[in-house]
Amino acid sequence: MEYFLQQLINGLTLGAIYGLIAIGYTMVYGIIGMINFAHGEIYMLGAFISLIAYLAATTIGGGSVAVALMVALLATMLLTALWGWTVERVAYRPLRKAPRLAPLISAIGVSIVLQNFSQLAQGARVKPLPPVVRGGFTLMQSEDFAVNLSWLQIFIVMLTAVLMAVFTWVITRTSLGRAQRATEQDMKMASLLGINVDRIVSITFVMGAALAAVAGLMVTLYYGVIDFYIGFLAGIKAFTAAVLGGIGSLPGAMLGGLLIGLIEAFWSGYFSIEYKDVATFGILVMVLLFRPTGLLGRPEVEKI
């Protein structure tokens, strides 16, 4: 029971991080129908930028961890969003009307470029950061096992919840969100009605990148080690999460992320750590077989 609870907590934390990345995939897929392969790399850049920003903030600003974290969070969201915007502007926008595979190949190219750029700029070795936020409290204590809930885990889950709330509000209640939903439904019609579609797509990329940046910051704090290669696997898993939840659906992405996080935590806790990625993909295949639209996705009607 204690062990179960601990895995549940770990899984939820991990799932929150995957969910934040998955939102970027699901929004971009919903709006322009492409798999943004470079999104995992954007998250990786977010992790690096957050580490640099945090270190810079502590060096300049002195001791306060909370202030340094806030500065790092804002700086990371801003700068990573700019990367996301640039990628869309340079590598995807010219291919909006190209054959379906062209943007995908372009995205894979961008992903290779960003990975190698980070390796060249920051070195290939892993970057360790000593724990910044320590402590927490013990939920339950048996003879040989204590269930710990750290402040950091609370912080991660709370921040994710807040971001999700803000995000849902933007999408469902603001004119920007309405324009986004309109563009998602019918790009041509939306542009006929005076929506600047290019701008909406750009904003979508910026939003996705900002959320991925937050995920990057969280991973840096949570695991304490990052390297230039983390984007790939996290990217695939987040995409899996997006598909699992139903691609194009925002709550679906979050739900998918949480599920993937839980599956991964329980699988490594009870079965084997080596095969945790196999478990994730196995579940994905099962979901696609029995519910191809994902858990919360709408069935797609094919029109001739």
Partner: peptide, 28 residues
């Protein structure tokens, strides 16, 4: 056999996952 009923992009991600599964198995 199980995945070819899926639409193009789902197929892409499943094949990607399959590639990774094979690699993980070879590794472990």
């Amino acid at each position: 056999f199980p995945v070819l009923r899926l639409r193009g992009d789902y197929l892409a991600i499943v094949t990607l996952g399959f590639g990774e599964i094979i690699r993980v198995i070879l590794q472990n």
